[in-house]
Amino acid sequence: MSESNQHQKLVNIIIEHISNIVGAERTCFIESDVADGHPLPQLTPEGFRPDVMYQYENVLFIGEAKTIDDVVKTHSLMQYESYIKKCSLFTGKATLIIAVPWMEYATVYNITHQIKKRYPGDYVIKIIKGIGV
């Protein structure tokens, strides 16, 4: 499977996860950077565009899909920090969702929880294992 197909599959996993939480009537608030009819997510103050974003009322989801080759790249590390910072500053319920191939789960968990120590707040980091991607 090509990296772009793998990335698309991981993004779709994030969208499906958010859709299941917010319900069908609120999926119109999902933004994504794939050609699926959703508007593009807004940039963070640091200039990064997440793969998926949902913000409605007091709920924020930021979703980022990472393939094996991207998990520990400098750009990815900067994205994780930017998205964690945004979650930490959000007033309401914020969740960062990162979808990765299952073998990268521990790496992303360790990286994001080290970054989280620098940004206290009441938010969640959820890492989804993409099975078979």
Rank of each mutant, 00 (worst) to 15 (best):
M1P: 00
S2F: 11
Q6S: 10
H7K: 05
V11Q: 01
I14M: 04
I15T: 09
I18F: 12
I21N: 06
V22A: 02
A24K: 15
E25H: 04
R26E: 13
R26S: 08
C28G: 12
F29G: 01
I30G: 08
D33G: 14
V34R: 10
D36P: 11
G37K: 07
H38E: 07
L40C: 08
L43S: 14
L43M: 14
L43R: 15
P45Q: 09
R49C: 12
R49P: 14
P50T: 00
V52L: 05
M53T: 08
M53K: 11
M53V: 06
Q55S: 01
Y56I: 03
Y56R: 13
V59K: 14
L60T: 05
F61L: 04
F61T: 00
I62F: 06
G63V: 03
E64R: 03
T67V: 07
V71W: 07
V71Q: 06
H75I: 13
H75M: 06
L77M: 08
L77C: 07
Q79H: 06
Y83G: 07
Y83P: 13
I84R: 02
K85W: 10
F90N: 10
A94W: 07
A94R: 09
A94K: 04
L96I: 03
L96K: 00
I97K: 05
I98W: 00
V100L: 03
E104I: 01
V108H: 01
N110T: 05
I111L: 12
T112M: 13
Q114N: 14
K116M: 02
K117I: 10
R118C: 01
R118E: 06
G121C: 06
K126Q: 15
I128N: 05
G130S: 08
G132R: 08
